[in-house]
């Protein structure tokens, strides 16, 4: 049917009198990286919330692998392999970094209370495998030395890395990253770009919200520009960035250029 991993069709959402997202259409091809940019308050995060089921749209459809996911509870959407991160670096602060990671895998045997009480050996065996995987992913993100620290003790940038690493534990098909570079220092950001490219090679599809234009230029195959709830333009990053309208939209809100 359709090679697109994600198709957003005619999605709208209002909060009171404000149209946060207005008739948005957006396609993400399988194994591609799509950037979503736009000034503050353009509706990027709301669109994310709708795609992942954390908000319900007033109108429109969201197809993930050709299946409409609007109306599904968000945890079920996540189980299908469409997993998000949050804009504010969110870690489970009072759990260790390793525990944060081990929470990731979906439908673990030991997450059922009966299995814990009656099938402990199997649970333990699975737990060992999850632990191994968590350690290797932490190693990939250079977080291995922090494995036994409380996640709350990490820096903001490290928390961003951790939340990306944690989503990988779910074996996602597609990741939605909300400002993965905000608050991350340039060295770490460079690494992160490398990681995202590697993950794309491994077959993961990305939709990324980001204010930092250079990062988006470097990462994306396609860029969508959202302004005042509407998709203003889309295309290859080079073309989009040189678009006058886009520059104006951003210049109207100079704060947005940081990142």
């Amino acid at each position: 049917m359709n090679a697109d991993m994600l198709r957003v069709k005619g999605v709208s959402k209002s909060f009171g009198g404000i149209k946060a997202v207005d008739n948005c259409n957006l396609n993400v091809e399988r194994k591609s990286i799509v950037g979503l940019i736009g000034p503050n308050g353009a509706g990027k995060s709301t669109l994310f919330e709708i795609i992942t089921g954390f908000e319900q749209p007033d109108a429109g459809e969201v197809f993930f692998r050709n299946e409409n996911v609007v109306g599904l509870p968000s945890f079920k959407i996540a189980r299908q392999g469409l997993v998000r991160t949050f804009q504010i670096p969110q870690a489970l602060n009072k759990m260790t970094v390793l525990e944060n990671m081990m929470l990731g895998p979906q439908l673990q045997r030991g997450e059922k209370i009966w299995n814990v009480l009656l099938r402990w050996p199997q649970v333990k065996k699975e737990e060992r495998a999850v632990r191994e995987k968590a350690l290797s992913v932490l190693d990939f993100f250079d977080l291995l030395p922090m494995a036994d620290e409380y996640a709350g003790a990490l820096s903001g940038g490290q928390k961003k890395l951790l939340s990306l690493a944690r989503t990988l534990m779910t074996d996602p098909e597609m990741l939605l990253l909300d400002e993965p570079f905000a608050g991350v220092n340039p060295t770490l950001s460079k690494k992160l770009i490398g990681h995202i490219h590697e993950l794309k090679e491994e077959g993961i599809t990305f939709l990324i919200i980001e204010h930092g234009i250079p990062y988006i230029m470097e990462l994306s195959d396609t860029v969508y520009v959202l302004n005042k709830g509407e998709i203003m333009t889309s295309g290859e990053p080079g073309d989009v960035i040189s678009d006058r309208c886009v520059l104006e939209a951003y210049l109207g809100d100079t704060d947005a250029q940081g990142g």
């Binding site: 968000s74 996540a78 189980r79 009072k94 759990m95 779910t170």
Partner: peptide, 18 residues
């Protein structure tokens, strides 16, 4: 572990399919 993650932050737990 899922219980503790809920205590900490329900949104994260949900986003991970719990």
């Amino acid at each position: 572990r899922v219980l503790k993650s809920i205590r900490e932050n329900e949104e994260i737990a949900t986003s991970l399919g719990k």
